[in-house]
């Protein structure tokens, strides 16, 4: 039987419907490699394990545990929590890292409650000191930095998507099939799954490296297309303020802010967004913030690295033209 390094960090790698590691895996394994030896757990469809394991190795997992089961697409959270419990038993890691996605949080919650582990949520980074693993959090919309640690034991840490830039080097992983002991815990059943057809090649808002967001200043659903156009030139995801969502310009899955999606991209472009605290809470940890607004006193300018006071219907088309010209 394989022995796992003393400084193992167990990473739950979520799989996409087609069986590849989810986008969050690179950041999780990158974070794990900074504090110990990354050990990946992937729950895959029968037969899909080896391919998924190789993909985990390419992202830096030195060991990969593969749990092949059909249960994970039939029942919510419990099969993955059972696999994680079996993996943790085997690996005895110093910490467990899970994506702070809806499904990741469910598995983290069930696993932590079952094993009585300390939980640290929505971490933006992890570190190791002489006493163990420390989670770094950015709370109240990035206004405070908080560090947390468990009193003892391995913490379960959910990591904010897109928050960790570190990437681990590709390795040839040691792969092992994992025997999962079913817990028998009651679960909700998945009756139907419909993959949504991808309407554009635009990146997903959550975890995107660049975001272009529009607010009430766009004035109508038709004119919101300007946000889409700039996003496509920059290769960015499309976001919106709550005001734009409430006005019906875009579906609420685009909402950035306290009650929508929190993003920490490299670049955040705010078009016609005043920058209410509620909105800033979801984006002010962006590395670079750019804003265009006709109101020179809009609070968004207080946090913008580059602000243009002007009519966005003049400025944005010129910006698109300039950027497109450079590409040619």
């Amino acid at each position: 039987m394989t022995t796992f390094p003393d400084d193992s960090i167990l990473v739950l790698v979520e799989a996409t419907p087609s069986g590849e590691p989810a986008k969050s895996a690179a950041g999780l394994l990158g974070a794990a490699s900074g504090i110990g030896t990354p050990v990946a757990l992937i729950v895959a469809h029968p037969g899909r394990g080896p391919e998924a394991a190789a993909a985990c190795g390419a992202l830096g997992a030195e060991h990969v545990l593969v749990a092949e089961t059909e249960a994970a697409t039939a029942w919510l959270a419990v099969p993955a929590a059972d696999a994680l419990a079996s993996a943790a038993d085997l690996v005895r890691p110093d910490a467990i890292l899970i994506s702070n996605s809806a499904d990741g949080r469910d598995v983290a919650g069930r696993f932590a409650a079952r094993t009585r582990s300390a939980v640290a949520v929505d971490a933006v980074g992890v570190a190791r000191d002489e006493e163990g693993i420390v989670a770094h959090h950015s709370v109240y919309g990035g206004a405070y930095n908080v560090h947390s640690a468990p009193t003892f034991g391995a913490p379960v840490i959910t990591v904010r998507e897109g928050a960790v830039d570190a990437r681990a080097e590709a390795v040839e992983p040691a792969v092992e099939m994992l025997d999962v002991t079913p817990s028998g815990a009651a679960a909700a059943s998945i009756e139907l799954f419909e993959e949504q057809s991808v309407e554009s090649s635009r990146p997903e808002l959550r975890g995107a490296a660049k975001v272009v967001a529009g607010g009430r200043g766009l004035s109508s659903e038709e004119q919101f297309a300007l946000v889409d156009q700039l996003a496509d030139v920059l290769g960015a995801a499309v976001g919106a303020s709550r005001a734009a969502v409430d006005a019906g310009y875009v579906p609420n899955s685009h909402q950035v802010g306290q009650t929508g999606v929190s993003v920490s991209p490299q670049l955040y472009v705010a078009l016609g967004i005043s920058g209410a605290i509620q909105h800033r809470a979801g984006m002010q940890t962006a590395k670079t913030i750019v804003a265009i607004n006709k109101d020179p006193d809009a609070p968004i300018f207080d946090i913008a690295d580059f602000g243009v006071v002007g009519d966005l219907f003049q400025v944005v088309p010129q910006l698109i033209e300039s950027l497109s010209a450079r590409k040619e």
């Binding site: 405070y144 560090h147 947390s148 640690a149 009193t151 913490p155 913008a304 602000g307 009519d311």
Partner: peptide
């Protein structure tokens, strides 16, 4: 049982405004 404890808390320096130009 293990508990998660806060070991430090600090206020992030507020983001300062950068360049602001009038179109």
């Amino acid at each position: 049982n293990p508990r998660s404890i806060m070991i430090s808390v600090s206020e992030k320096p507020p983001r300062s405004a950068g360049t602001k130009i009038v179109d």
